[in-house]
Amino acid sequence: MADERHDQYEKDNAPGELSRREFVALSVAAGLAAAAGSAAAADVPVTETNVQVQTPDGVCDAVFIHPTTGTHPGVLVWPDAFGLRPTMRDIGKRLAAEGYAVLIPNPFYRVAKAPVIDNPSSFNFQNPTDRAKLTPLMGSINAPGAAEKDAVAFMAFLDAQPQVNKAQKIGTQGYCMGGRLVMKTAAAVPDRVGAGASFHGGGLVTNDPDSPHLLAPQIKAKMYFGIAANDDMQQPDAKDKLREAFTAAKNPAEIEVYSNAQHGWCVPDMPKQANGEPIYNKPDAERARSKLVALYKAALA
């Protein structure tokens, strides 16, 4: 598999393309991020820097957030369909304050700079025009091989940072579509990723030959899946197939259905549900977050 992957990458990066060039100086801090105005109890001071990460497909705008001093395990955060934005930065800052060096990329860099949606809280999933905005964005990162190429670039970025402890495994977490990207990342760089967590992940189990759950044999990371009640209702066998896949791979995953939580419950700037209730569910979001931190503490030691 690894040989095939290298061969494919060689083809993808044919003469004249990235692999043939000696590309260096690839990730340039592009600007200085201001505090996002949501400061609260931080464990340690953190530094937030806007960066650019070169990938085989272009330059990805991203943010790198880490404790101001020391070296720490690296974490890659895959955003949901609304991409890199203030609420994702808040998630990263809070995690960094607990002792992690966090990279949050704009997953849609191939087609647009972040932020890609002006106001996620007013996004209307029932409106076809709103939904159509997401199609080209999600299509770009879900294209075959895109996430895998990005995963290598992002791992390389983290490993190049003095704030990242390279002796410790890297964690990756994702929300909504980011859950699928977590699995692709863990499978693409299996010896570097020690933990993966998916919260209200979308498209984790499909009937397609490239369904993410079929990647379980390639994944060495300890995995956690938090599933929304409405996602579970829509696809009740997904959790079973996930569990079976990881058990068969002799790497049992922890899988929980949050019976009071709707798809998107972990992300504070989610729009309201059709019934007017907020999607964001703070108690369950905090519970999910505690599972994430426990996973990282155990698996990234």
């Binding site: 690894a2 692999s19 990938t55 693409a188 299996p190």
Partner: peptide, 30 residues
């Protein structure tokens, strides 16, 4: 959320090595 004592990093240049070399490092050919 976190970042209560946030500082701002100076602009810096971060070097990432050749991507294919990184691939070989991260996913050694078998």
């Amino acid at each position: 959320m976190g970042g209560g004592h946030q500082t701002v990093a100076p602009a810096n240049l971060i070097i990432v090595q050749n991507w294919l070399e990184e691939l070989k490092r991260l996913v050694p050919p078998k």
